[in-house]
Nucleic acid binder design. Structure first.
Lengths: 244, 244
DNA sequence: ATACATATTTGATCTAAATCAATGCAGCTG
DNA sequence: CAGCTGCATTGATTTAGATCAAATATGTAT
């Protein structure tokens, strides 16, 4: 199975502190980060930030899964990203956030005070470069997701989503059995992520179960029994770029 | 009408050289950039880069309009961005490009040799920071576009697209009459950008003409006669974030 | 002008997925 | 254990937009 080494190669380094950012930091820089950090926890379902909120902190996810999304005036929701451990929240250099951040499962964040963090970015070129790399990875991932939203069928969306979950799960826990998948999201949340409705998600998962591609042990837990069929169903070519 | 000052505020500065990157460069840095730059031109319709191409240059658009997109195995195409003057092509720190770049109109690029450009980024913190800002702007724009692709109706997509064009046109040419729009794209290209088919694009434009929202002087040129109606049709709230 | 290629419009039909509407199934709580 | 409450499935129906199919401009080359 294809696992990208391009997506946040540093995310298993520096496991205790703030993995995403500090990959190349020396002890002095780590000390600064430690000084301005604090941990915060959120229960599943709780909003973390709302569109337009003033950002006094930037944060990186320590544990749990969050979502980044936008709600339209009439209530339609589109998720634009899932936040896994080591993912970053907030833009250095921006005082506001443009999207809603919600805790999907219980979430723990490592928060950095914005002002001193930005000072560190300004005075430490390799941190700026690391953040640039991360932003560019996310930009590519967002664009791949645009292809999914604009052109893929329901089946292809679901298959792609499952492949992405597998990739992210084995990245954050390389010891885990690769083909056992735990869905952190409800059908409705999956639907908001894929630009579908919850019924369509349910039907497609049901169909893939009936076809023997997935073996469910529970409504939120299954094993991929036929990875080739799953991959073919994504509509991507063999080495299709990594999504998230 | 709402014009964002967040989108590339520097794009009218430094008009002769390479506006996007050099906003804060001093004369020495500009000299380095001048040294490693060269101009290249492409005719409308020509491919500029293909997915997987080795990048020996990074570039910024001087004139014309380009597109960034991905083609699926079976030929389905999704554009993931339009490239206007001052937009940047290629990721510093990446040897390959993940998307197809095509000249939509005749295009002139200002190309920088990759290696020395990356050296400049590494040794010049404010350039890295500028690139980070640009990447984060594009990331927000890409995410807003995900909302469009995942949740908006055909009508909303078209209206949003026209608003975006107005914004970009008046950014690159503030003297232009804001509500006169020249479509640089064919119906088919608009469709690939919006996740629609060309017939649907044609029908929606036709309907907006009949409803008096747009006055066409030519198939590729029209005036927005009723901006409020257009904005309402986007489905965004009043101060809806800037798209591209 | 004539012919040809390329965009565009317009109409008729089809279909994937949305919507509407129950019903089923866990995990909790009292 | 009975009764909620919040997911999840399943079925019937509708519909926005895709697909299929001409017809009509527009532009360019001969």
């Amino acid at each position: 199975m294809y696992i990208s080494d391009r997506v946040r190669p540093s995310c298993t380094e520096c496991p205790i502190r703030h993995r995403a950012v500090c990959a190349r930091c020396d002890e002095d820089e780590l000390a600064i980060l430690d000084n301005i950090k604090s941990y915060k926890s959120f229960k599943a379902g709780e909003p973390i930030l709302w569109r337009g909120d003033e950002l006094t902190y930037l944060a990186s996810i320590v544990s749990g899964v969050g979502s980044l999304g936008k709600t339209m005036e009439d209530g339609r929701i589109q998720m634009v990203g899932l936040l896994f451990p080591s993912d970053f929240i907030g833009h250095p250099g921006r005082a506001q956030i443009e999207f809603d951040v919600v805790a999907v499962t219980d979430v723990t964040l490592c928060c950095f005070k914005r002002k001193p963090f930005e000072d560190l970015v300004a005075s430490t070129p390799h941190v700026a470069q690391r953040l640039l790399e991360m932003a560019l990875d996310e930009l590519d991932a967002a664009r791949d997701w645009m292809v999914l939203l604009g052109r893929k069928t329901a089946r292809e969306k679901i298959a792609t989503f499952i492949e992405m979950l597998i990739r992210r799960q084995s990245l954050s826990d390389p010891s885990s059995e690769a083909l056992k998948v735990v869905l952190p999201l409800t059908r409705e949340e999956i639907a908001s992520f894929l630009g579908l409705t919850l019924e369509t998600v349910s039907r497609q998962l049901g169909a893939m179960k009936k076809e023997g591609i997935l073996h469910f042990s529970d409504r939120r837990q299954f094993e991929v029994a036929d990875f080739d069929a799953l991959h073919i169903a994504t509509g991507d070519d063999a080495d299709g770029g990594p999504l998230f």
